[in-house]
Design a protein around this nucleic acid. Structure first.
Length: 638
RNA sequence: GCCCCUAUAGUUAAAUGGUAUAACACAUCCAUGGUAAGGAUGAAUUUCCAGUUCAAUUCUGGGUGGGGGCACCA
């Protein structure tokens, strides 16, 4: 007779077979009400799953990840039910749980509309009201395939074929409606509650493969209380408010236009931010021993053929034919150009490691559907560098790249960084021994960095393993920015070599690295992270000087000129508006410092500071202000 | 690239088979002001190409861009 061990170690003994629900009832009335699913020896089961052996269990409520995910999974089922009731002939395919919600993919000729979503939601509420009971059946594979084929559910039949032989084929019923599903599920449709919302319509390929037909996906979210649902919707709204595309327009940083989709038109303020970041990086890299170079944007086709890009990357490359019929490519990467710089003159082992950096603007013909503001563009500037070194130097160089990245992210307010490590893919170049070495070296560097990391098996580049640096922003989103790749291929292809101690020619290892990745993308991330309120040292426009009335224009100009001389970006606002108006206007455009100048300031040779998001006034001598704030114009670590 | 949605002034929005409204921004004038919108006046617009129609910004088709996803991100 089953002996049930609870998470706190307590044991309960039952006379005969028992279900999760019974166990919950025995523990407490409130638990039996809140119980959603149960883990039995680590396997998630329905609450009416019959237990007849000794085991450990944990009963899940909406407070657990397992509980809330089951609610979402059930909501997906209820949605599919509603869709099939409203639109007979629609086929269901898959409907998994995702972060904060769920989706279900449907096959139907006519597209769903926004109004359909309302109808579906209404129908879902009806189904919740009907409180259809759930029950689970295990079917024979053949019977299941035949059944779903007969009912016109071709996709389901296909899914069954791909279920591993040793797994059961289970079918869940909610009332009469049923779906092939692994489960577990709640006891009835009423249990999901009413705190759900269908959020968006989308297309999605069957089995995620762009060669397959496109299905219609409906996304939704589902929670265990109205408050959680409201909080979630609020969170989405807040994230929309910090959208860099919106803020970029409002703050007059940049714009995009039809003539060049995916390329940025930088305005004065945005370009200032861009240049500040480059200046900052340049300083950091000089300190770290990099030599900055610059290589041509347009290079002859033959170089790209030699490097392998023509073949492997050709469809993403812009090309250009000259009047005399020569074909050039606009560089999609900086590496071949950099290797050519390395190739100038004989290099000795004493020159290694040789770190060459380049703020190189590259162009890639990205698929139109992937473009997204600054985050995915067709023309962007990489903070690129290539480190030529020996195999023995890989670990040390990787470690120093990692440290540099951490310093830089920290200066910019990102302290939460994780690594993604990708090792050898099936399709690759180079001998296994070299891969062994490269992977060991990278792993050593990762381990000594003490950062958390994940392994992406087989996801490395064809020419070598890589690390990707992922930072977490102020609202918990992860962004992959920096990357470090070991290249065992390109130096050889382009004939790079150095003279070793013994006088023999050797091929150097090349490390590709980028810290921000793309300046454009990083600026997008920065804007969203700070909601546009960038720290003083990096702000696109740091101060605006405002005279209290026109009588003080001269003094305001004088203050402005001194500020500009001290290296702080400043504007002076002499427009015909009153003080309140100007303060409101410039606060909304997120200028960190407003300097007010009136009679008081003129008489005492001071300025009155108003900081963004504060209504305090600080009066200080102009000299003191210049000293204090030009120091604050530097990055924290410089 | 694929699916769906979408395109009105500098921006954000409204309206209509008979060429369009508002707010903010902008310009001029008045007001010269002390920490988040002072007042008056003014100028300015239907994404492009076809089609239907007496008439298209509105309806239909297509192009292009934008948005949400999918795929892609070497």
């Amino acid at each position: 007779m089953p002996n049930i061990t609870l998470p706190d170690g307590k044991k309960l003994n039952f006379e005969k077979k028992v279900t999760g629900l019974k166990i919950a009832e025995k523990i407490s009335k409130s638990l039996s009400k809140q119980a959603l699913v149960i883990s039995v020896d680590g396997h998630l089961r329905d609450l009416n799953f019959e237990i007849d052996n000794d085991c450990s269990v944990k009963i899940h409520t909406s407070k657990d990840k397992e509980g809330i995910e089951t609610i979402r999974h059930d909501t997906a089922h209820v949605m599919a039910m509603a869709v099939q009731e409203l639109f007979p002939g629609t086929q269901v395919t898959i409907g998994p749980v995702i972060d904060d919600g769920f989706y279900y993919d449907f096959a139907r000729k006519e597209p769903f509309t926004e109004e359909d979503l309302q109808k579906i939601e209404k129908k879902m509420k009806e189904i919740v009201e009907r409180d259809e009971p759930t029950h689970r059946e295990v079917w024979k594979r053949d019977k299941a395939v035949e059944h779903f084929k007969k009912t016109g559910e071709i996709y389901k039949a296909e899914i069954i074929k791909s279920i591993p032989k040793e797994e059961e084929v289970s079918v869940y019923f909610h009332g009469k409606w049923h779906d092939l599903c692994r489960g577990p599920h709640l006891l009835s449709t009423g249990k999901i509650g009413k705190f759900f919302k269908l959020t968006k319509l989308a297309g999605a390929y069957w089995r995620g493969d762009s060669n397959n037909e496109m299905l219609q996906r409906i996304y939704g979210t589902s929670w265990s209380s109205q408050k959680d649902l409201d909080d979630y919707l609020k969170r989405i709204e807040e994230a929309e408010k910090r959208d860099h595309r919106k803020l970029g327009k409002e703050m007059d940083l940049f714009h995009f236009r039809e003539e060049s989709p995916g390329s940025v038109f930088w305005h004065e303020k945005g370009w200032n931010l861009f240049q500040k970041l480059i200046e900052y990086m340049r300083t950091k890299q000089n300190i770290a021993g990099y030599k900055e170079i610059n290589t041509p944007e347009i290079l002859d086709r033959s170089l790209w053929e030699k490097s392998g890009h023509w073949e492997k990357f050709g469809e993403h490359m812009y090309t250009s034919k000259t009047p005399d019929e020569k074909i050039f490519a606009i560089k999609p990467m900086n590496c071949p150009g950099c290797v050519q710089v390395f190739n100038q003159g004989l290099k000795s082992y004493r020159d290694l490691p040789l770190k060459m950096s380049e703020f190189g603007k590259v162009h890639r013909y990205e698929p139109s559907g992937s473009l997204h503001g600054l985050l995915r563009v067709r023309a962007f500037t990489q903070d690129d560098a290539h480190i030529f070194c020996t195999e023995d130097q890989i670990t040390e160089e990787c470690l120093s790249v990692t440290n540099l990245i951490l310093e830089i992210y920290k200066d910019l307010g990102f302290n939460d960084v994780i690594l993604k490590y990708s090792d050898r893919p099936n399709l690759r170049v180079g001998a296994d021994e070299i891969w062994d070495k490269a992977e060991d070296a990278l792993l050593q560097a990762i381990n000594s960095s003490k950062l958390k990391y994940t392994i992406n098996k087989g996801e490395g580049a064809f020419y070598g393993p890589k690390i990707e640096y992922v930072l977490r922003d102020a609202i918990g989103r992860d962004w992959q920015c920096g990357t470090l790749q070991v290249d065992l291929n390109l130096p050889e292809r382009l004939g790079a070599s150095y003279v070793d101690k013994d006088g023999s020619k050797k091929i150097p290892v090349m490390l590709h690295r980028a810290l921000f990745g793309s300046l454009e993308r990083f600026i997008g991330i920065l804007i969203e992270n700070y909601s546009g309120k960038l720290p003083f040292w990096i702000a696109p426009l740091q101060t605006i000087v405002i005279p209290v009335s026109n009588d003080f224009d001269d003094y305001a100009m004088k203050v402005h000129n001194k500020i500009v001389k001290s290296g702080i970006t400043s504007q002076v606002d002499l427009k015909n508006h009153n003080l309140n108006y100007k303060i409101r206007e410039h606060s909304l455009s997120k200028i960190p410092l407003l300097l007010i100048c009136g009679k008081k300031e003129v008489d005492s040779n001071t300025v009155t500071i108003r900081r963004l998001d504060s209504n305090k006034q600080e009066n200080m001598e102009l000299k003191e202000f210049l000293k204090k704030f030009s120091a604050l114009s530097k990055a924290p670590s410089i």
